[in-house]
Design a protein around this nucleic acid. Sequence first.
DNA 1: ATCCATGATTTATA
DNA 2: TATAAATCATGGAT
Length: 346
Amino acid sequence: MDEQTRLMHSHTGVGMAGHPGLPQHMQEGTGGTDGDGRKQDIGDILQQIMTITDQSLDEAQARKHALNCHRMKPALFNVLCEIKEKTVLSIRGTQEDEPPDPQLMRLDNMLLAEGVSGPEKGGGSAAAAAAAAASGGAGPDNSAEHSDYRTKLTQIRQIYHTELEKYEQACNEFTTHVMNLLREQSRTRPISPKEIERMVNIIHRKFSSIQMQLKQSTCEAVMILRSRFLDARRKRRNFNKQATEILNEYFYSHLSNPYPSEEAKEELAKKCAITVAQVSNWFGNKRIRYKKNIGKFQEEANMYAARTAVNAANASSHGSQANSPSTPNSAGGYPSPCYQSDRRIQ
DNA sequence: ATCCATGATTTATA
DNA sequence: TATAAATCATGGAT
């Protein structure tokens, strides 16, 4: 804002500060009898112009009107034009084309990618898809989180859009205000359309920098939201009971060699509705934690051993051998040296 | 508020 | 490259 004001003042300054030469100029030119009166007259007007900022609006308006109606006004205007011609050179050189700010582009791209600045619902689903991808395709129990995420994202998007609209409106209002002001002033002092355009550009730049701040904070909010909801590590979810049982069952029934093959991992992943990587993680954690404190897991081990034993018994009593759990082990085979030859497909 | 369980990540190792 | 081991960070119980 201050840039505009400054510039406007400097314009005013150019117009006004150039004046002091004027009376002299006039004085020289007019040697006649009514010259003194005219000089006095113009001196008054100039004095009024110089002090116009100290006056109330109505007063100023009246003075302006008086000035515009004054018979010397065209001459004054011409002089202002001349003065400006001599002093305005510096403005011309400034560049007009503004290269797109890379940071702004980055923010725009991100907002678009997150579905904040894009179309209303399409962006949301894209973000949801990204969410699903980011969360490692973990099971069905996070759909609630996704909807939660979506509502939060929608909130952000709404805030973003209302703010953006507000800025847009404010920018337009301010621009038209300034343009009106300049047009009004152009009756009294020379203002080229190009200067108005420049001013409009300055305003727009200022407002777009405000918009950039909005975009930046929106991006931040989205990032926080993402990390809160979608970073799998932060949003650790225990596997459901069934999955844990399946994994434990496998672990304790293969205690002597709890290293599921790739195929077995895939099978387990499918059964537990988790990824193969999660199966690997689980076995990695389980092995090391079991080894570190066998005592703590003794009860669990016994339980699963008993369960598999029952399963085996049931299976054999039903005469079906095809599905029986393969070579269940008694607890304690891992990590102590294992002499059983329980070789699975590796 | 604190502690423990647990899934994920990182680093080291063979 | 798979695994071991250490570590992180959260969920959930207390």
